[in-house]
């Protein structure tokens, strides 16, 4: 494991913790897209199918359990918790997220490294993760008042993707046989989706004003 991978995993972990902190302590999920959270739950469920059959390291297993547990509990909070769900911006969060899943599944059936159930599911999770942030970005754009925690959540997610790209560059030069087009291209697409957000995030930080995305 290199420093970029670790930094990527940690920013990913912090993003989830920030979100859970917001939901659990403030009892609010205002500004958070349930559509994006449901997509992440599906992403982790389909990617970690091998969690108990393919052991890599204790670190990997624990992190997988954290991401699975946190993503499903966030969805539970937003759908079922009697206080939290009242703060959900249902009318603003209208992205038709199920329509993202079908193209990702078809693409995974066509473009994969091996045509097996596990491999297709794993590829599907990569494609879906690449676009899963879209409902959240649309919601951010509609929300006039982006609170700090929501802004930090999306920033940390974007940072996680950026670190993963550095990790792949590092691994490409330090390891043999490390060419994974599917992972790289879907990862790059995913990171580029954050470019616009990053621009406005740094602008607001530099000028010390509240984050607001242009409509």
């Amino acid at each position: 494991m290199n420093i970029f991978r670790l930094a990527g995993d940690m920013t990913h972990l912090f993003s989830v913790l920030v979100l859970l902190l917001k939901i659990h302590t403030i009892k609010s999920c205002a500004g958070i897209s349930l559509k994006t959270q449901e997509l992440y739950a599906i992403v982790f469920a389909t990617r970690y199918l091998d969690i108990f059959t393919n052991y890599i390291s204790l670190y990997n297993t624990i992190m997988k359990l954290i991401f699975l547990g946190s993503s499903f509990s966030i969805v539970w909070y937003m759908r079922r918790h009697k206080i939290v769900r009242r703060s959900y911006d249902k009318d603003q969060d209208t992205f038709r997220h199920y329509f993202l899943m079908l193209p990702c599944l078809i693409l995974a059936l066509i473009i994969n490294e091996k045509f097996t159930f596990r491999e297709v599911m794993w590829t599907f999770s990569l494609y879906l993760e690449a676009v899963a942030i879209l409902p959240q970005l649309v919601l951010l754009q509609r929300t006039r008042n982006i609170d700090n925690l929501t802004g930090q959540y999306v920033f940390l997610l974007g940072a996680y993707r950026a670190f993963y790209i550095l990790n792949w560059i590092y691994r490409y030069f330090t390891e043999e046989h490390f060419v994974h087009w599917i992972t790289w291209i879907s990862g790059l697409v995913q990171t580029l989706l954050y470019a616009d957000f990053f621009y406005y995030y740094f602008q607001s930080w530099k000028n010390n004003v509240k984050l607001e995305l242009p409509a």
């Binding site: 890599i56 046989h177 490390f178 994974h180």
Partner: peptide, 10 residues
């Protein structure tokens, strides 16, 4: 193997 390398990430 190649597969192992891809799957060791999260």
């Amino acid at each position: 193997t190649k597969d192992q390398v891809a799957k060791d990430e999260l």
